[in-house]
Design a protein around this nucleic acid. Structure first.
Length: 438
RNA sequence: GGAGGGGUGGCAGAGCGGUUGAAUGCACCGGUCUUGAAAACCGGCAUGGGGGCAACUCCAUCGUGGGUUCGAAUCCCACCCCCUCCGCCA
Protein backbone atom coordinates (compact mmCIF):
# COMPACT_ATOMS: atom_id res chain seq x y z
CA UNK A 1 0.00 0.00 0.00
CA UNK A 2 1.18 3.48 -0.82
CA UNK A 3 0.84 6.51 1.44
CA UNK A 4 -2.20 8.56 0.41
CA UNK A 5 -0.19 11.74 0.83
CA UNK A 6 2.44 10.36 -1.49
CA UNK A 7 -0.25 9.58 -4.05
CA UNK A 8 -1.59 13.12 -3.89
CA UNK A 9 1.85 14.71 -4.07
CA UNK A 10 3.26 12.36 -6.71
CA UNK A 11 0.22 11.78 -8.78
CA UNK A 12 2.02 11.67 -12.11
CA UNK A 13 4.42 8.95 -11.04
CA UNK A 14 1.57 6.86 -9.68
CA UNK A 15 -0.54 7.36 -12.82
CA UNK A 16 2.45 6.34 -14.91
CA UNK A 17 2.91 3.17 -12.89
CA UNK A 18 -0.77 2.27 -13.23
CA UNK A 19 -0.59 2.76 -16.99
CA UNK A 20 2.67 0.86 -17.42
CA UNK A 21 1.45 -2.06 -15.35
CA UNK A 22 -1.78 -2.22 -17.33
CA UNK A 23 -3.88 -2.28 -14.17
CA UNK A 24 -6.97 -0.28 -13.39
CA UNK A 25 -6.95 2.14 -10.50
CA UNK A 26 -8.95 5.36 -10.37
CA UNK A 27 -6.93 7.95 -8.48
CA UNK A 28 -9.74 10.51 -8.63
CA UNK A 29 -11.95 8.03 -6.83
CA UNK A 30 -9.21 7.22 -4.33
CA UNK A 31 -8.60 10.88 -3.52
CA UNK A 32 -12.31 11.67 -3.38
CA UNK A 33 -12.79 8.78 -0.95
CA UNK A 34 -9.92 10.09 1.13
CA UNK A 35 -11.34 13.61 1.24
CA UNK A 36 -14.74 12.28 2.27
CA UNK A 37 -13.10 10.18 4.96
CA UNK A 38 -10.96 13.01 6.24
CA UNK A 39 -13.74 15.60 6.29
CA UNK A 40 -16.02 13.25 8.19
CA UNK A 41 -13.22 12.47 10.58
CA UNK A 42 -12.66 16.13 11.27
CA UNK A 43 -16.37 16.64 11.92
CA UNK A 44 -16.33 13.69 14.29
CA UNK A 45 -13.28 14.98 16.12
CA UNK A 46 -14.97 18.32 16.73
CA UNK A 47 -17.91 16.58 18.32
CA UNK A 48 -15.59 14.39 20.35
CA UNK A 49 -13.72 17.42 21.61
CA UNK A 50 -16.98 18.99 22.72
CA UNK A 51 -18.15 15.77 24.36
CA UNK A 52 -14.84 15.49 26.21
CA UNK A 53 -15.22 19.06 27.34
CA UNK A 54 -18.73 18.45 28.68
CA UNK A 55 -17.72 15.26 30.44
CA UNK A 56 -14.83 17.04 32.09
CA UNK A 57 -17.06 19.86 33.29
CA UNK A 58 -19.59 17.54 34.91
CA UNK A 59 -17.23 16.24 37.56
CA UNK A 60 -16.68 19.73 38.93
CA UNK A 61 -20.07 21.19 38.15
CA UNK A 62 -22.57 22.33 40.70
CA UNK A 63 -25.12 19.56 41.34
CA UNK A 64 -27.86 21.88 40.13
CA UNK A 65 -26.18 22.27 36.75
CA UNK A 66 -25.51 18.61 36.18
CA UNK A 67 -28.76 17.41 34.63
CA UNK A 68 -28.50 19.93 31.81
CA UNK A 69 -24.88 19.00 31.13
CA UNK A 70 -25.64 15.31 31.18
CA UNK A 71 -28.39 15.86 28.68
CA UNK A 72 -26.01 17.79 26.45
CA UNK A 73 -23.52 14.94 26.77
CA UNK A 74 -26.18 12.46 25.81
CA UNK A 75 -27.04 14.42 22.70
CA UNK A 76 -23.38 14.62 21.70
CA UNK A 77 -23.00 10.92 22.23
CA UNK A 78 -25.77 10.25 19.74
CA UNK A 79 -24.14 12.58 17.25
CA UNK A 80 -20.67 11.05 17.55
CA UNK A 81 -22.14 7.60 17.27
CA UNK A 82 -23.90 8.44 14.00
CA UNK A 83 -20.83 10.16 12.61
CA UNK A 84 -18.69 7.24 13.71
CA UNK A 85 -20.74 4.78 11.70
CA UNK A 86 -20.60 7.00 8.68
CA UNK A 87 -16.85 7.34 9.08
CA UNK A 88 -16.34 3.58 9.32
CA UNK A 89 -18.14 3.20 6.01
CA UNK A 90 -16.04 5.89 4.33
CA UNK A 91 -12.85 4.43 5.73
CA UNK A 92 -13.67 0.97 4.41
CA UNK A 93 -14.37 2.41 0.95
CA UNK A 94 -11.13 4.36 1.06
CA UNK A 95 -9.07 1.36 2.16
CA UNK A 96 -10.66 -0.80 -0.51
CA UNK A 97 -9.67 1.69 -3.18
CA UNK A 98 -6.17 2.03 -1.78
CA UNK A 99 -5.65 -1.67 -2.41
CA UNK A 100 -6.09 -1.09 -6.13
CA UNK A 101 -3.11 1.26 -6.31
CA UNK A 102 0.17 -0.53 -7.10
CA UNK A 103 3.68 0.45 -6.08
CA UNK A 104 5.55 2.99 -8.17
CA UNK A 105 8.31 2.04 -10.61
CA UNK A 106 11.94 2.98 -11.12
CA UNK A 107 12.52 5.06 -14.27
CA UNK A 108 14.38 2.28 -16.06
CA UNK A 109 11.54 -0.25 -15.80
CA UNK A 110 11.07 -2.04 -19.12
CA UNK A 111 7.70 -1.43 -20.72
CA UNK A 112 5.47 -4.31 -21.67
CA UNK A 113 2.31 -6.04 -20.63
CA UNK A 114 3.44 -9.59 -19.88
CA UNK A 115 6.45 -11.88 -19.55
CA UNK A 116 7.13 -11.67 -23.29
CA UNK A 117 8.50 -8.19 -22.69
CA UNK A 118 10.91 -9.12 -19.93
CA UNK A 119 14.49 -8.19 -20.75
CA UNK A 120 17.32 -10.69 -20.64
CA UNK A 121 20.23 -9.07 -18.88
CA UNK A 122 22.74 -11.90 -18.73
CA UNK A 123 23.26 -15.58 -19.26
CA UNK A 124 25.18 -18.33 -17.53
CA UNK A 125 26.29 -21.26 -19.73
CA UNK A 126 24.63 -22.04 -23.02
CA UNK A 127 21.93 -24.69 -23.31
CA UNK A 128 24.03 -27.75 -24.15
CA UNK A 129 23.69 -29.49 -27.51
CA UNK A 130 23.19 -33.21 -27.05
CA UNK A 131 22.98 -35.98 -29.59
CA UNK A 132 20.15 -37.91 -28.00
CA UNK A 133 16.48 -37.24 -27.40
CA UNK A 134 16.16 -35.64 -23.99
CA UNK A 135 13.26 -36.67 -21.82
CA UNK A 136 11.18 -34.30 -19.75
CA UNK A 137 11.12 -34.61 -15.97
CA UNK A 138 7.80 -36.47 -16.05
CA UNK A 139 9.26 -39.30 -18.08
CA UNK A 140 12.42 -39.27 -16.00
CA UNK A 141 10.35 -39.21 -12.85
CA UNK A 142 8.60 -42.33 -14.07
CA UNK A 143 11.56 -44.32 -15.35
CA UNK A 144 13.68 -43.47 -12.32
CA UNK A 145 10.66 -43.88 -10.01
CA UNK A 146 11.12 -40.47 -8.44
CA UNK A 147 7.76 -38.75 -8.69
CA UNK A 148 4.37 -40.41 -8.30
CA UNK A 149 1.65 -38.17 -9.71
CA UNK A 150 -0.96 -40.96 -9.79
CA UNK A 151 -0.45 -41.57 -6.12
CA UNK A 152 -0.71 -37.87 -5.40
CA UNK A 153 -3.95 -37.63 -7.36
CA UNK A 154 -5.36 -40.64 -5.52
CA UNK A 155 -4.68 -39.10 -2.14
CA UNK A 156 -5.22 -35.38 -2.71
CA UNK A 157 -6.24 -34.80 -6.32
CA UNK A 158 -4.62 -33.52 -9.47
CA UNK A 159 -1.40 -31.51 -9.11
CA UNK A 160 -0.41 -33.29 -5.95
CA UNK A 161 2.40 -35.83 -5.99
CA UNK A 162 4.64 -38.03 -3.96
CA UNK A 163 8.37 -37.53 -4.14
CA UNK A 164 10.04 -40.92 -3.97
CA UNK A 165 13.43 -42.56 -3.72
CA UNK A 166 16.32 -40.27 -4.74
CA UNK A 167 13.92 -37.34 -5.28
CA UNK A 168 13.48 -37.20 -1.52
CA UNK A 169 17.22 -37.08 -0.99
CA UNK A 170 17.53 -34.54 -3.77
CA UNK A 171 15.07 -32.22 -2.06
CA UNK A 172 16.84 -32.55 1.28
CA UNK A 173 20.23 -31.95 -0.31
CA UNK A 174 18.96 -28.86 -2.11
CA UNK A 175 17.54 -27.47 1.08
CA UNK A 176 20.75 -28.05 2.92
CA UNK A 177 22.80 -26.56 0.12
CA UNK A 178 20.67 -23.42 -0.13
CA UNK A 179 20.62 -22.88 3.62
CA UNK A 180 24.35 -23.31 3.89
CA UNK A 181 25.07 -20.72 1.23
CA UNK A 182 22.60 -18.20 2.65
CA UNK A 183 23.77 -18.65 6.22
CA UNK A 184 27.35 -18.05 5.10
CA UNK A 185 26.22 -14.64 3.88
CA UNK A 186 24.56 -13.66 7.13
CA UNK A 187 21.00 -14.79 6.48
CA UNK A 188 19.25 -16.11 9.58
CA UNK A 189 17.70 -19.55 9.05
CA UNK A 190 13.99 -20.05 9.77
CA UNK A 191 11.33 -22.64 9.39
CA UNK A 192 7.95 -20.97 9.36
CA UNK A 193 4.34 -21.79 10.14
CA UNK A 194 2.61 -23.13 7.04
CA UNK A 195 -0.58 -21.33 8.05
CA UNK A 196 -1.02 -17.65 8.65
CA UNK A 197 -3.77 -15.31 9.76
CA UNK A 198 -5.66 -13.69 6.94
CA UNK A 199 -4.57 -10.20 7.94
CA UNK A 200 -0.95 -11.33 7.63
CA UNK A 201 -1.66 -12.58 4.10
CA UNK A 202 -3.26 -9.26 3.30
CA UNK A 203 -0.39 -7.32 4.79
CA UNK A 204 2.04 -9.21 2.60
CA UNK A 205 -0.14 -8.36 -0.39
CA UNK A 206 -1.83 -11.71 -0.87
CA UNK A 207 -5.60 -11.87 -1.16
CA UNK A 208 -7.02 -14.50 1.15
CA UNK A 209 -10.32 -14.46 -0.69
CA UNK A 210 -11.81 -13.27 -3.93
CA UNK A 211 -11.53 -14.33 -7.55
CA UNK A 212 -7.85 -13.71 -7.93
CA UNK A 213 -7.01 -15.50 -4.71
CA UNK A 214 -4.55 -18.33 -5.03
CA UNK A 215 -4.77 -19.43 -1.43
CA UNK A 216 -6.38 -22.26 0.48
CA UNK A 217 -8.41 -21.15 3.45
CA UNK A 218 -9.12 -23.07 6.62
CA UNK A 219 -12.83 -23.43 7.16
CA UNK A 220 -14.26 -21.61 10.18
CA UNK A 221 -10.90 -20.20 11.10
CA UNK A 222 -9.18 -16.95 10.30
CA UNK A 223 -6.28 -18.87 8.74
CA UNK A 224 -5.00 -19.73 5.31
CA UNK A 225 -2.26 -22.03 4.06
CA UNK A 226 0.72 -19.94 3.08
CA UNK A 227 1.59 -19.58 -0.60
CA UNK A 228 5.21 -18.79 0.25
CA UNK A 229 7.41 -18.18 3.29
CA UNK A 230 7.32 -14.53 2.28
CA UNK A 231 3.97 -14.38 4.07
CA UNK A 232 4.95 -15.61 7.55
CA UNK A 233 8.38 -13.99 7.46
CA UNK A 234 6.88 -10.67 6.39
CA UNK A 235 4.44 -10.99 9.27
CA UNK A 236 7.16 -11.93 11.73
CA UNK A 237 7.94 -8.31 12.53
CA UNK A 238 4.49 -6.85 11.84
CA UNK A 239 3.66 -3.88 14.08
CA UNK A 240 7.24 -3.63 15.28
CA UNK A 241 9.78 -0.85 15.37
CA UNK A 242 13.17 -2.37 14.64
CA UNK A 243 16.39 -0.76 15.82
CA UNK A 244 18.38 0.65 12.93
CA UNK A 245 21.42 -1.41 13.96
CA UNK A 246 19.44 -4.58 13.26
CA UNK A 247 19.14 -3.67 9.58
CA UNK A 248 19.56 -5.10 7.09
CA UNK A 249 17.81 -8.06 8.71
CA UNK A 250 18.10 -11.04 6.39
CA UNK A 251 16.31 -14.35 6.69
CA UNK A 252 16.44 -17.57 4.77
CA UNK A 253 13.23 -19.48 5.41
CA UNK A 254 11.93 -22.88 4.53
CA UNK A 255 8.21 -23.49 4.23
CA UNK A 256 5.68 -25.43 2.29
CA UNK A 257 3.82 -23.45 -0.33
CA UNK A 258 0.19 -24.10 -1.14
CA UNK A 259 -1.50 -22.66 -4.20
CA UNK A 260 -4.97 -23.36 -5.52
CA UNK A 261 -3.94 -22.38 -9.07
CA UNK A 262 -7.61 -22.03 -9.99
CA UNK A 263 -7.95 -21.74 -13.74
CA UNK A 264 -4.30 -22.56 -14.37
CA UNK A 265 -5.04 -25.82 -16.14
CA UNK A 266 -4.24 -24.54 -19.63
CA UNK A 267 -0.97 -22.86 -18.73
CA UNK A 268 2.48 -24.33 -18.91
CA UNK A 269 1.78 -26.61 -16.03
CA UNK A 270 3.03 -30.03 -16.91
CA UNK A 271 4.32 -32.21 -14.13
CA UNK A 272 6.00 -30.39 -11.28
CA UNK A 273 6.04 -27.00 -12.98
CA UNK A 274 2.78 -25.79 -11.45
CA UNK A 275 1.48 -27.78 -8.51
CA UNK A 276 -0.73 -27.23 -5.47
CA UNK A 277 1.99 -27.93 -2.94
CA UNK A 278 5.75 -27.65 -2.92
CA UNK A 279 8.41 -26.56 -0.53
CA UNK A 280 10.68 -23.64 -1.00
CA UNK A 281 13.71 -21.96 0.52
CA UNK A 282 12.97 -18.25 0.48
CA UNK A 283 15.14 -15.21 1.07
CA UNK A 284 13.61 -12.24 2.84
CA UNK A 285 15.10 -8.97 4.06
CA UNK A 286 14.06 -5.94 6.05
CA UNK A 287 16.25 -2.95 5.23
CA UNK A 288 16.45 0.81 5.48
CA UNK A 289 15.37 2.67 2.34
CA UNK A 290 19.05 3.41 1.69
CA UNK A 291 20.04 -0.27 1.83
CA UNK A 292 17.35 -1.91 -0.23
CA UNK A 293 18.85 -1.50 -3.69
CA UNK A 294 22.16 -3.04 -2.63
CA UNK A 295 20.46 -5.89 -0.76
CA UNK A 296 18.36 -6.56 -3.85
CA UNK A 297 21.49 -7.03 -5.95
CA UNK A 298 23.04 -9.14 -3.21
CA UNK A 299 20.00 -11.40 -3.18
CA UNK A 300 20.16 -11.86 -6.91
CA UNK A 301 23.87 -12.59 -6.70
CA UNK A 302 23.23 -15.26 -4.07
CA UNK A 303 20.51 -16.83 -6.21
CA UNK A 304 22.81 -16.85 -9.22
CA UNK A 305 25.64 -18.39 -7.28
CA UNK A 306 23.35 -21.25 -6.26
CA UNK A 307 22.59 -22.09 -9.88
CA UNK A 308 26.18 -21.55 -10.90
CA UNK A 309 27.28 -24.06 -8.28
CA UNK A 310 24.61 -26.45 -9.52
CA UNK A 311 25.90 -25.82 -13.07
CA UNK A 312 22.47 -25.24 -14.52
CA UNK A 313 22.28 -22.97 -17.58
CA UNK A 314 20.18 -19.93 -16.81
CA UNK A 315 19.45 -16.38 -17.79
CA UNK A 316 18.57 -13.42 -15.62
CA UNK A 317 15.65 -11.32 -16.78
CA UNK A 318 14.49 -7.92 -15.66
CA UNK A 319 10.72 -8.05 -15.21
CA UNK A 320 8.73 -5.54 -17.25
CA UNK A 321 6.08 -3.28 -15.74
CA UNK A 322 3.11 -5.39 -16.78
CA UNK A 323 4.54 -8.60 -15.33
CA UNK A 324 5.28 -7.17 -11.87
CA UNK A 325 3.09 -7.91 -8.89
CA UNK A 326 1.45 -4.89 -7.28
CA UNK A 327 3.86 -4.69 -4.30
CA UNK A 328 7.03 -5.03 -6.38
CA UNK A 329 8.97 -1.93 -7.34
CA UNK A 330 11.69 -3.83 -9.18
CA UNK A 331 12.11 -7.50 -9.88
CA UNK A 332 14.49 -9.98 -11.45
CA UNK A 333 13.79 -13.59 -12.34
CA UNK A 334 16.23 -16.36 -12.96
CA UNK A 335 15.05 -18.66 -15.71
CA UNK A 336 16.70 -22.05 -15.87
CA UNK A 337 17.13 -24.01 -19.04
CA UNK A 338 14.62 -26.86 -19.06
CA UNK A 339 15.24 -29.28 -21.95
CA UNK A 340 11.83 -30.88 -21.50
CA UNK A 341 9.85 -27.66 -21.58
CA UNK A 342 8.12 -26.85 -24.86
CA UNK A 343 9.15 -28.46 -28.15
CA UNK A 344 12.93 -28.31 -27.86
CA UNK A 345 13.52 -26.94 -24.42
CA UNK A 346 12.78 -23.49 -23.03
CA UNK A 347 13.89 -21.28 -20.22
CA UNK A 348 11.50 -21.52 -17.27
CA UNK A 349 11.17 -19.29 -14.23
CA UNK A 350 12.99 -20.79 -11.31
CA UNK A 351 13.54 -17.89 -8.90
CA UNK A 352 12.60 -14.28 -8.49
CA UNK A 353 13.95 -11.41 -6.45
CA UNK A 354 11.77 -8.43 -5.68
CA UNK A 355 12.32 -5.13 -3.98
CA UNK A 356 8.95 -4.06 -2.57
CA UNK A 357 10.32 -0.82 -1.09
CA UNK A 358 7.97 0.31 1.69
CA UNK A 359 4.80 -0.93 -0.01
CA UNK A 360 4.54 -4.15 1.97
CA UNK A 361 6.01 -2.62 5.14
CA UNK A 362 3.28 0.01 5.29
CA UNK A 363 0.52 -2.59 5.46
CA UNK A 364 2.47 -4.89 7.74
CA UNK A 365 3.41 -1.82 9.78
CA UNK A 366 7.09 -2.66 10.11
CA UNK A 367 9.17 0.39 10.94
CA UNK A 368 12.60 1.24 12.24
CA UNK A 369 13.86 4.09 14.33
CA UNK A 370 16.02 6.27 12.16
CA UNK A 371 18.94 7.34 14.31
CA UNK A 372 19.74 10.57 12.53
CA UNK A 373 16.24 12.02 12.71
CA UNK A 374 14.87 10.04 15.65
CA UNK A 375 11.82 9.36 13.49
CA UNK A 376 10.11 6.05 12.89
CA UNK A 377 10.19 5.19 9.21
CA UNK A 378 8.87 2.26 7.26
CA UNK A 379 11.46 -0.34 6.36
CA UNK A 380 11.91 -1.68 2.87
CA UNK A 381 11.21 -5.37 2.32
CA UNK A 382 12.69 -7.68 -0.26
CA UNK A 383 12.01 -11.28 -1.09
CA UNK A 384 13.57 -13.81 -3.36
CA UNK A 385 13.60 -17.48 -4.08
CA UNK A 386 16.67 -19.47 -3.20
CA UNK A 387 15.32 -22.83 -4.30
CA UNK A 388 11.80 -23.91 -5.20
CA UNK A 389 11.66 -27.64 -4.65
CA UNK A 390 9.32 -28.15 -7.55
CA UNK A 391 11.15 -26.30 -10.27
CA UNK A 392 14.79 -26.75 -9.38
CA UNK A 393 14.49 -30.56 -9.51
CA UNK A 394 12.94 -30.20 -12.97
CA UNK A 395 16.03 -28.34 -14.14
CA UNK A 396 18.37 -30.82 -12.49
CA UNK A 397 16.68 -33.94 -13.80
CA UNK A 398 16.33 -32.63 -17.33
CA UNK A 399 19.80 -31.08 -17.60
CA UNK A 400 21.71 -33.86 -15.90
CA UNK A 401 20.15 -36.77 -17.77
CA UNK A 402 22.41 -39.03 -19.80
CA UNK A 403 21.85 -41.01 -22.97
CA UNK A 404 21.81 -44.07 -20.75
CA UNK A 405 18.60 -42.85 -19.12
CA UNK A 406 20.29 -42.03 -15.84
CA UNK A 407 20.65 -38.70 -14.05
CA UNK A 408 24.03 -37.56 -12.78
CA UNK A 409 23.87 -35.91 -9.36
CA UNK A 410 25.29 -32.36 -9.36
CA UNK A 411 28.64 -32.39 -7.66
CA UNK A 412 27.70 -30.01 -4.87
CA UNK A 413 24.79 -32.22 -3.82
CA UNK A 414 26.72 -35.49 -3.67
CA UNK A 415 28.02 -35.13 -0.12
CA UNK A 416 24.50 -34.87 1.32
CA UNK A 417 22.79 -37.27 -1.10
CA UNK A 418 25.50 -39.85 -0.79
CA UNK A 419 25.15 -40.93 -4.41
CA UNK A 420 26.61 -39.82 -7.75
CA UNK A 421 23.99 -41.02 -10.16
CA UNK A 422 20.33 -42.00 -10.26
CA UNK A 423 19.49 -45.19 -12.16
CA UNK A 424 16.27 -46.51 -13.72
CA UNK A 425 14.33 -48.82 -11.44
CA UNK A 426 13.19 -51.27 -14.15
CA UNK A 427 9.93 -52.00 -12.41
CA UNK A 428 11.78 -53.28 -9.38
CA UNK A 429 9.38 -51.51 -7.08
CA UNK A 430 6.32 -52.80 -8.89
CA UNK A 431 7.71 -56.34 -8.55
CA UNK A 432 8.32 -55.86 -4.90
CA UNK A 433 4.81 -54.55 -4.42
CA UNK A 434 3.35 -57.56 -6.21
CA UNK A 435 5.38 -59.93 -4.15
CA UNK A 436 4.22 -58.24 -0.99
CA UNK A 437 0.61 -58.44 -2.17
CA UNK A 438 1.00 -62.13 -3.11
C1' G B 1 -10.20 -29.85 25.17
C1' G B 2 -11.05 -28.60 30.94
C1' A B 3 -9.72 -25.33 35.43
C1' G B 4 -7.31 -21.02 37.17
C1' G B 5 -4.01 -16.47 36.56
C1' G B 6 -2.52 -12.55 33.39
C1' G B 7 -1.97 -8.92 28.96
C1' U B 8 -0.56 -1.01 30.76
C1' G B 9 4.85 3.38 27.40
C1' G B 10 11.77 0.54 24.82
C1' C B 11 11.78 -2.76 29.44
C1' A B 12 10.05 -3.46 34.59
C1' G B 13 5.82 -2.08 37.22
C1' A B 14 1.53 1.18 39.85
C1' G B 15 -3.25 2.57 38.66
C1' C B 16 -11.06 4.35 44.31
C1' G B 17 -15.59 5.08 36.85
C1' G B 18 -14.20 11.69 36.64
C1' U B 19 -7.75 17.19 36.54
C1' U B 20 -4.46 9.43 34.36
C1' G B 21 -1.84 9.74 28.13
C1' A B 22 -1.09 7.26 32.37
C1' A B 23 2.80 7.25 39.16
C1' U B 24 7.62 5.06 40.01
C1' G B 25 12.18 2.63 38.57
C1' C B 26 15.52 1.20 34.62
C1' A B 27 17.17 2.30 29.81
C1' C B 28 17.84 6.41 26.45
C1' C B 29 19.00 11.84 25.01
C1' G B 30 20.83 16.85 26.61
C1' G B 31 23.24 19.61 30.57
C1' U B 32 26.08 20.64 35.43
C1' C B 33 30.22 18.59 38.05
C1' U B 34 35.15 15.82 36.59
C1' U B 35 41.81 15.77 33.59
C1' G B 36 38.60 11.75 31.50
C1' A B 37 34.94 8.25 32.93
C1' A B 38 31.62 6.60 36.72
C1' A B 39 28.49 8.39 40.56
C1' A B 40 25.43 12.47 41.91
C1' C B 41 22.24 16.36 40.43
C1' C B 42 19.02 19.21 36.70
C1' G B 43 16.05 18.83 32.30
C1' G B 44 13.86 15.95 28.31
C1' C B 45 11.80 11.38 26.62
C1' A B 46 4.97 7.02 23.59
C1' U B 47 2.68 6.41 18.74
C1' G B 48 -0.52 7.77 14.80
C1' G B 49 -3.62 11.52 12.74
C1' G B 50 -5.93 16.67 12.11
C1' G B 51 -5.32 22.25 12.44
C1' G B 52 -1.59 26.41 12.81
C1' C B 53 4.22 30.26 9.97
C1' A B 54 5.00 29.27 14.96
C1' A B 55 4.41 29.01 20.31
C1' C B 56 0.80 25.57 20.36
C1' U B 57 -3.71 22.92 20.01
C1' C B 58 -7.41 19.05 19.04
C1' C B 59 -8.62 13.64 18.20
C1' A B 60 -7.46 8.49 18.82
C1' U B 61 -4.65 4.63 21.24
C1' C B 62 -3.55 0.89 28.26
C1' G B 63 -4.10 -7.18 23.75
C1' U B 64 -8.44 -6.79 19.72
C1' G B 65 -13.56 -5.79 18.79
C1' G B 66 -18.30 -4.61 20.81
C1' G B 67 -21.33 -2.75 25.08
C1' U B 68 -22.86 0.16 29.72
C1' U B 69 -22.12 5.56 31.13
C1' C B 70 -22.47 12.55 30.48
C1' G B 71 -17.45 10.26 31.39
C1' A B 72 -13.88 3.57 30.97
C1' A B 73 -6.92 1.58 31.60
C1' U B 74 -10.68 0.91 35.58
C1' C B 75 -17.48 -2.19 34.85
C1' C B 76 -19.93 -6.04 31.20
C1' C B 77 -19.61 -9.43 26.70
C1' A B 78 -16.90 -11.91 22.75
C1' C B 79 -12.36 -13.09 20.64
C1' C B 80 -6.82 -13.35 20.47
C1' C B 81 -2.28 -14.17 23.01
C1' C B 82 0.88 -15.58 27.33
C1' C B 83 1.61 -18.43 32.05
C1' U B 84 0.31 -22.61 35.65
C1' C B 85 -2.23 -27.26 36.44
C1' C B 86 -5.13 -31.51 34.26
C1' G B 87 -6.33 -34.44 29.85
C1' C B 88 -4.66 -35.93 24.91
C1' C B 89 -0.48 -36.33 21.90
C1' A B 90 4.56 -36.40 17.75
Amino acid sequence: MLDIKFIIENREAVEKSIAMRHVTADLDAVIAAYDRFRETKQALEEKQAEANQVAKTISKADPAERPALIERGSALKAETSTLGEKLAGYEAEFQELMLTVPNTLPDDTPEGKDDQANIEIRKFMEPPRVNFKQKDHIELGKSLDLIDFEGGAKVAGAKFYFLKNEAVLLEMALQHFAFKKAIERGFIPLQTPDLARNDVLQGAGFAPRGNESNTYRIEDQDLSLVATAEIPVGGLHANEILPEEALPLRYVAWSHCFRTEAGAAGQASKGLYRVHQFSKVELYAFTTPEQSAAVHEEMLELEESIYQDLKIPYRVVRICAGDLGAPAWKKYDIEAWMPGKGENGEYGEITSASNCTDFQARRLNVRYKDKASGKNRFVHTLNGTAIAMSRTPIAILENYQTDRGTVIVPEVLRPVMGIDEIFPKNGAVADATQKAAG
